[in-house]
């Protein structure tokens, strides 16, 4: 069975400090989703999670032009009650719909960032400086029964350094490597490639695990499987700063029968609510009174 390394959100004090300021000065009671972004690192080699780090600069609209980033939304509720009442399955479903739409309309071929989105539901108690949040990085469960086989890059005729230099130069989160011509191609060329054994999809991957790709690859597979319904497998290169890996994914598709009754375009189920340190599907609470509470700060400085 193929496995994909999930994200773990690392929200630092600087992030909440910005939230405090924006909530008091700009947003006030406005609960509409706010754009946020995270810089992902391809240099992680330790641990078993992909890091989704958010800091003081994650709320600014300026998205970095270098490096791998993921954009998302912050849903900050005014009351603890509304935070509690959030319909989590409804939220993930509507986010999955957006991703699926970018797949069925083939927009992802022009803008692959559409495939990887996250959102955070949160409540900030600005009196006690307690924060509750829960992150979701939706991944479509599609196609089904995905299996993986790790292959060294050399067997694909690819060279890590050439791929990584190409990535650094162009900053494409996803691009193609043609086994036939040994050339890098833009992702949009995937439409014209019909032989899954002649092309590799190269995905910039923050996974630190040597034998498993990161969470973001899931939606790439869903997109590839939808684009080429006849494909039963696909070669992915999980691109990291050191030791990229090749992975051959195989799957079964509910293809022929389903497309007949229109089910191929039905939005697949999505997963992706983050698990806490105890591997439970639960929100996380953080007490930052020691960092932010003026009373405590006063006492400490005496």
């Amino acid at each position: 069975m193929a496995t994909f390394v999930p994200f773990v959100t690392c929200l630092d004090t600087g992030f909440w400090n910005e939230v405090n300021k924006k909530k008091l000065n700009d947003w006030k009671l406005d609960e509409t989703p706010k754009c946020i972004s995270s810089q992902l690192s391809l240099h992680q080699t330790e641990g078993f999670k992909c890091h989704l780090s958010l800091s003081y600069d994650s709320l600014s609209s300026l998205e970095s032009t270098t490096g791998l980033s993921m954009s998302g939304t912050l849903l900050l509720y005014n009351t603890i009650e509304s935070f509690k009442m959030v319909d989590k399955s409804d939220l993930i479903r509507s986010e999955a719909e957006k991703i699926w739409e970018s797949i069925t309309t083939r927009k992802w071929l022009q803008n692959p960032r559409l495939l990887s989105q996250f959102f955070i539901i949160a409540f900030a108690d600005l009196k006690k400086f307690k924060y509750y949040y829960w992150t979701c990085v939706p991944a479509l469960v599609y196609p089904s029964e995905i299996k993986q086989e790790i292959t060294p890059l050399s067997s694909l005729g690819a060279d890590h350094k050439i791929l990584f230099d190409f990535y650094r130069k162009n900053n494409f989160p996803i691009f193609l490597y043609s086994k036939q011509s040994s050339k890098m191609l833009e992702l949009s060329e995937l439409e014209n490639n019909t032989n899954p054994d002649e092309i590799c999809v190269v995905v910039a991957d923050p996974s630190p695990v040597a034998y498993s790709a990161g969470w973001m690859v899931r939606n790439v597979l869903a997109a590839v499987a939808h684009l080429h319904p006849t494909w039963k497998h696909c070669h992915i290169i999980s691109l990291r700063s050191a030791d990229s890996i090749g992975i051959k994914y195989t799957w079964t598709l509910p293809s022929a029968e389903c497309s007949a009754d229109g089910a191929q375009n039905a939005v697949p189920k999505a997963v992706g609510w983050e698990r806490n340190a105890n591997d439970k599907l639960q929100p996380i609470s953080v007490d930052l009174s020691k960092e932010f509470d003026p009373k405590i700060l006063m006492e400490r400085s005496v």
Binding site: K84, V141, L281, Q282
Partner: peptide, 26 residues
């Protein structure tokens, strides 16, 4: 303060019945 936590995180959690076999587990 923790005792009077306004939020029972356990209660808010999602049911774990939907197994996702493709999630990487250490």
């Amino acid at each position: 303060d923790d005792d009077e936590e306004p939020l029972d995180l356990d209660e808010l959690g999602l049911d774990d019945d939907e197994e996702d076999p493709n999630r990487f587990v250490v």
